[in-house]
Design a protein around this nucleic acid. Structure first.
Lengths: 176, 176
DNA sequence: TATGAAAATGAGAAATA
DNA sequence: TATTTCTCATTTTCATA
């Protein structure tokens, strides 16, 4: 348990510096394709390559850019089955057992939730059988009252955090 | 490259080539940090830099690596509120209105689901008010019978698709 | 703008089937 | 023996001051 798994946990070690329109455009480009050269991004946003580099460095240091990672195809790595699992727990003593679960690469997201459930899990597994095994291990943690599993039939959209907001996207929107 | 970017939608245009242990280690490293040099990865897995490059090129071409992207901090880009929305629809005619919703950068994931709900949405917004506005627009689509919103209080784990499986987790040490 | 490092490409050698 | 895949050497592009 003495492992320093930072892996994907929020850092937020950043300066609360405001982002301007240029920052947002750069972030938008990088969130789509981080292999773009600074020169190419600079052409898009109207900046020189070193200027883009400077901003990206700042965005990295501030934690706005958490990491640059490869997005893998679930099916291609042998995990074609995606599911969300809602877990109802007794009390708040979930933390200990939770850490053990996070060791499993099948788990991608773990959120505490408001609403009629306590915990929302996003998992990706090889087969229904693997899902069954995963559920069994969740109950082994203890303090689990019930689970509800939502198997994903098809994914229509799956993209990273977007830098843009609705306001600067569509001006004519009927947003009240 | 003038690429047909569909903004995160599955392509799976890949060869069904099996991944060996080396591929998985490389994928694991890149899914954590895609800024690593091929030489550094090569040292980890016991390969030369060009050899790693060759495999990565293959993995990209096959679609196993979908993209290399920057992970952004939701709070830092002005969207501190994460929520899952379950949508109950009437019939299956959701497709048309769905496409309009995907234009909104607040939407990150859209899945069809089995279970007692039809659609699972993952959204990230600036405020409760923005969430309210988003819900309103969802109902505007039509065919929406009901929604259930699960607001995320805190995120304990959020990482990309993992290349490993539970079986080979124990054997493979932490690739540092 | 200039420098250094790393990525990309090609040719030869070794291991495997 | 033929095919695949690694290593080595070279060029070119990009990050960084």
């Amino acid at each position: 348990m003495a492992e320093e798994k930072t892996d994907g946990v929020r850092k937020t070690a950043g300066t609360p510096r405001a982002l301007d329109a240029l920052d947002r455009k750069i972030l938008g480009a990088l969130s789509r394709d981080a292999t773009l050269s600074y020169a190419a991004i600079g052409q898009d946003v109207g900046l020189s390559a070193p200027a883009v580099h400077e901003r990206v460095k700042r965005l990295r240091a501030s934690g706005t850019i958490e990491a640059t990672v490869a997005r893998l195809d679930g099916a291609a790595v042998g995990k074609p089955l995606l599911a969300f699992i809602h877990v109802d727990t007794e009390g708040w003593g979930v933390t200990t057992g939770l850490l053990a679960l996070q060791e499993m690469p099948e788990l991608e997201e773990v959120h505490s939730s408001a609403g009629d459930t306590n915990l929302i899990l996003k998992v990706r597994v090889a087969s229904p059988k693997a899902l069954e095994g995963l559920l069994a291990r969740i109950y082994e943690v203890g303090c689990v009252r019930a689970t509800r599993t939502y198997t994903v039939l098809s994914t229509h959209l799956d993209r990273p955090v977007q830098a843009g907001t609705t306001q600067n996207l569509a001006e004519g929107g009927p947003v009240k």
